[in-house]
Design a protein around this nucleic acid. Sequence first.
RNA 1: GCCCCGGUAGCUCAGAUGGAUAGAGCAACUGCCUUCUAAGCAGUGGGUCCCGGGUUCGAGUCCUGGCCGGGGCACCA
Length: 554
Amino acid sequence: MIDVELRETIAAGIKRAQRHGDLPSFDVPADIPVEHPRQVDMGDYATPVCMQLARYARMAPVAIAAALVRYMKLPEYIAEATVAHPGFINFRLSERWLAEQVNAILSAGESLGQLDLGEGTRVQVEYVSANPTGPLHMGSARNAVLGDSLAAVLQSAGYDVQREYYVNDAGSRMQVFYQTAYARYAQAFGRDFPVPEDGYHGAYMVDLGQQLADQLGDALLALDPGEATPRVGALALESVIAQARDDLAAMGVHYDCWFSEASLYADGQFDAIMSLLRQGGYLDVHDGAVWFTATQLGGSKDEVIVRSDGSPGYFASDIAYHYNKFVERRFDRVIDVWGADHQGHVPRMNHMMEALGLDPSRLTLVLYQLVTLKRGGEIVRLSKRTGDMITLREVIDEVGPDAMRYFLLSRSADSQMEFDLDLAVAQSDENPVYYIQYAHARLSSILRHAIELSDSEADVSLLTHPAELTLIRRMIQLPEIIQLAAEQLAPHHLAYYAYELASDVHAFYRDCRVVSSDPADRAVGSARIRLVRACQAVLRRVLEIMGMTAPDTM
RNA sequence: GCCCCGGUAGCUCAGAUGGAUAGAGCAACUGCCUUCUAAGCAGUGGGUCCCGGGUUCGAGUCCUGGCCGGGGCACCA
């Protein structure tokens, strides 16, 4: 990539200047900063390195910059390097080279935006993984969008990515869920069977009870509730998972694997990690429970693994699950996407990795701040147990999957966000989603009108208009945006990039006529058609990574 | 009390390993459709980057002490 090559160019320039005695001897910095200047008219790339070197060289930054400019051997795509106060070197891309990139983008085809940073590293992204005790709510929406886009970004960056949903089908809450399901099932036949005090009182459970009644008939009512509950529960679980799958699919979120927590116990993974921890001396028994001694690894307190009633806690599953990910399934790297309400678990997860003899840096926990939902100016609570909640499906149906994904993606995971449903719906015509998609539709429209014009003979060197060059400059940023998003695990950069690209498209549309009846415009028109096609490819690729559609008409 | 995340324009938010005059959308105001889609374009106004100290040639960015908002500190997940 360009910034990497410029770093080398600068480093080589420093050494050459030193050899010729125009710079004093000092170590070339390992990491030479290359950035984009604030203003485009300053140049395409810049380095402030001379200001850092001033103290070692005992020279004025501008003088160092001047020496460097003399000695750097510029790559062919750099038209010029200039010195700017107080010591920047600005690099300007060759316009000829820029125009040529249109062809490069088109010939990239399917591999457009495909990097090899990951070098095929096997990475798993686990996201959503909500308890299967009811419909997904809006909190999970942010998780889904983040995780799915992260997976797409990493794929594009050259990682071998697997997308996974962890089905928490073994926790103690599940028993309560099963009991609730049974109660609603029985009630569907007019039986007066109570929903547990700490059960799930949402209306959806009534519907589910009815559905179960329709599917199972009343045969199970004859059994003892203790016997019937697991059977009703199993079907209820199946139904909830199927619904989650559907709801996520409605947002374009799909998984490679739905992993069952219960299977960890059936397959003996739990027993395996227990003996592993015991051998490592990380287990302690007191107060009737089995503890993981996180304190000996620097933790603030020990953690219960097996409760005094003999049942394993969720942390037991977490350990077995991650053992499974790293040891059984041999992922090089695992990324779990969690809501900020789980942030207290981060230290113990790292301690767990250490105790299992795994490098904690192989596990990354991406935390996102919680979404506050507002409707009618009031904050909507997201508790499943009270039943007063806004479901994921409800919002998708209201604002559409594209808007949903864009809104949730366009803010960094670290910032808590307010999702105003009324606003999202009311402003749907003025929203950035349509701005971006409209840019794509406009390009499609041009191509429809240009159907009789061929770009096979196009001479891209005719692309010299400022609006064309601005657009191309943006287009070639795709790889570095993908790299940035992949390195920071921050897909929101894509949303901003897509918006800026769309903005450049709209400006190009205004300034540069593509289809013309005047024969004199034929050559440039054909070059522009090629630009339009290349630009569409870039726009489509970003939208694809974000999980959004690229409509041809709007 | 301790830990994590925020605090940037009226509102919602960007701001890459510390760099040049801190950006965008929405909202407000002013213009622009006889030619490829006006879901668009051009322009105007709008800032003690929460406050104090520190590091640095240089701080919205790093360190430190406060303030405010959110989340967490269970034999719940």
